[in-house]
Every structure is written in C-alpha cells, then in structure tokens.
Design a protein around this nucleic acid. Sequence first.
DNA 1: CCAATAAAAGCACGACCGTTCGAATCAGGC
DNA 2: GCCTGATTCGAACGGTCGTGCTTTTATTGG
Lengths: 199, 199
Amino acid sequence: MTKGDETRDSVLREALAQSSQVGLRGITIGGLADAMEMSKSGLFSHFGSKEGLQSAVMDYAAEAFTQLVIRPALKAPRGEPRIRTLFDRWLGWGGYADYALPGGCIFVSVASEFDDAPEGPVRTKVVQLERDLLDTIETIVRGGITEGQFRESTDPAAFAHDLLAIVLGYNFSARLLRDPAATGRAHDAFDRLLDHIRS
Amino acid sequence: MTKGDETRDSVLREALAQSSQVGLRGITIGGLADAMEMSKSGLFSHFGSKEGLQSAVMDYAAEAFTQLVIRPALKAPRGEPRIRTLFDRWLGWGGYADYALPGGCIFVSVASEFDDAPEGPVRTKVVQLERDLLDTIETIVRGGITEGQFRESTDPAAFAHDLLAIVLGYNFSARLLRDPAATGRAHDAFDRLLDHIRS
DNA sequence: CCAATAAAAGCACGACCGTTCGAATCAGGC
DNA sequence: GCCTGATTCGAACGGTCGTGCTTTTATTGG
C-alpha cells in the first residue's frame, strides 16, 4: 500500500468515526483535517469533493461491517446460530474494531439522515448498502428454511425488515434515551421474532 | 394573538416542515427567512438564537402531535381501539394538518440526530418529548390492562418501546427505501404485537 | 390621531464552509 | 544521488453560517 492510500485510509477511519456521531453531512473537511493534523487541501485532494468523501466513507463502512459482522456470522452454522451471531455482532460492532465507532452503527445513523434527501450519488449509495444488508439477512433466513429450522412459510423479506426495526429501536433506547434496559429488550424482541419463524 | 406571535407561529410551521426533511440541525436562519420572504434579522429576533429556534420548533411539533395524534386517540374507546388509533394516526400525522410535514414524523427524524449529541438544552428537550410519548403509550396500555383487554403480565414500557421500533422501521422502509410494502408490514408487526398482549 | 411600543429591515462582523491552484516537499526507481 | 511523479501544503476565492447593532416601519392603546 502506497503512502497516499495509507493516509487516505486513516482519514476514512477518522471520518467514519465522526460520521457515526454527527452523520455523513455533519463531517467537515476542516474538522477532519484538524483531527488528522494535516491541511484541508491535502486531505481534500484524496477525494476530489465532499460527495466523494461521503461516498468513500460509506464504502469504508460497508467493508468494515462485512469484516466485523457479516463474515463472522457466515462462519457460524446455518440457521439460528448464524442469524443470532449476525444480530449480536450488529448491536455492538462499533466496539469490535481496533478503532471505535463512538456513535454506534453508522447504517442506523445515516438511514434517517437521507430518507428525505433528494436523489444523488450519496443517497443512492446509502440505499444500495442498506438493501445489501437486508439481502444478506434474507439469504441467511432462506438458509435456515432450507435446513428445516425455520418454517417454510417464513417471509425472509419481512423477517429482515423486522430485524432491522429491532436494531433501530435498540439504537433509540440505548443511545438517545440511554436506557440500560435497551439491550435486554432488543434480545427479547429478537427471541420473539425467532420464535415466530421456528418450525 | 398579536402580530408578532402570528409571524412567529408561521415561521415555526415552516421550520417544522423543513426540520422534518433536513433535521433540526439542517434548518438555517437564512433559508427560513427566504422561505418566509422576510429578513434574516427580523426572523432571528423572534427566537434570540438558533438554539432557541430549535427548541421552539420541538415545542411546536409536540403541540401539533398532541392535537393531531394523541387527542384523537384518547377520544377512542379504551384499550385496543385507542392504541390502534394512536398507531394509525402516528404513521400518517404528517398529512393530517392543514400544512404538511413533507419529511414524515419529526420525532423519528430527530431521534438519531441527537443520539450522540453532547448534552444541551435542545437534546434535553428532544429526550424529554420522546419520553413523554413513550409515557403516553404506556398509560394507554395500562388502561387496556385495567379493562381486562390486555394481559395482566403485559409490560407497558416494553410495549411502548416495541411500538416505537415498529414506527422507526416503517419510516426506514417507507421513506428511505420507498418500499410500497412498508405500510402493510408495519400493520402486520403491530397486529403481532397486539396479539402478544391480548388476554 | 398621536405617541409609545413592537416588529421588521438593513448592514456589518468574524467564523467556517467547500473548492482551486501553484508551490513546496517527499517517495521510490534508475 | 538525482529525477520524476506522487503527496502535501499555504493562501486565497466566493458563499453561507449565526449573531450584534442601528434605523426604519408597522401596530396598538389612549
């Protein structure tokens, strides 16, 4: 990895951390340059535009999420263990990297930030990544159906949607309200969701 | 109502509409002034600071929500009809006023915006209003328990949390993904949630 | 109708925004 | 160890941000 790629990478790591707290729109070239102790223009030249930076952050986040959440889940046995691993890691993946995401899951933070945004490359990317995430969940569910662990009548898309809703609710309780019961409730909801599709 | 209060009110209406789309942080004194066709300073003088404006917007939103969602729910019979009315109106309250909230429920939009924000008067207000909303749901659930419609063992706080999660998920699917199945899924999830507490 | 008061406008400010560009500095291949 | 290209920097740009003043205009009570 060349020097340029190296700084680009560490800039993205910092940008991801900041985005998880203030959103993709909240990050600032100047603020990022300060945190990295480099010049605005030097940092800027790696991305060409703020949109380019935002897109790069989302790509970087997707890569990290794949490595820290999805890959470990796919290593677990098909069906319930796999979906449970995904859920557990998802709730806490901000803490699993050598760096941290102080603002929790960025896919949650960013979702409502772009829900009413006009069409544009960043929104398109956000939507696509969220869809990819739902697709992954659906695939795992389908695997569980094939295994016979989950009912034939299970609707994978509905399950994925409901699972995402649980994570959104968890984020609300844990981060906004700082409710200590958040984790327990999320797991309860998850168990109930699983009960419904178990055969 | 004096002239000043009148303009203040219409500014808040516009500010609420904008906030539902771009968030409380996304609104701008200048942008608001343009939309109202008045000067920045004239508009500014009604609120004293941007924080003051943001707080006022949340108060205004709470008032509208009470009138358009909570009050109609409380007019419905206790128990299931009441909680169902709340849910239905909640999903669509952006369209119920003579003005519209083009960005949907502002309590949803704003939740993740402030979840990692440092303590401050606006965050405090947001948290308090969200808590009030959960309290209202809990009270309605307790009413249903008293009526005998809901199980004695029902946990009103957990129900309120789960209901909120459904709305968050609905917002995600409907507004970010623009999934036409969003409404149906939200109602399905709501029915399942009710099934669980019905006696 | 006029005076007292409230509301709105005009203007300027310092700070920060994203972006451009030319100059300085550095890295790696010969 | 130099040459070339990659990388970073410094300074500046036009804009917009929130906010403070002073002045002008509108409203209202007597």
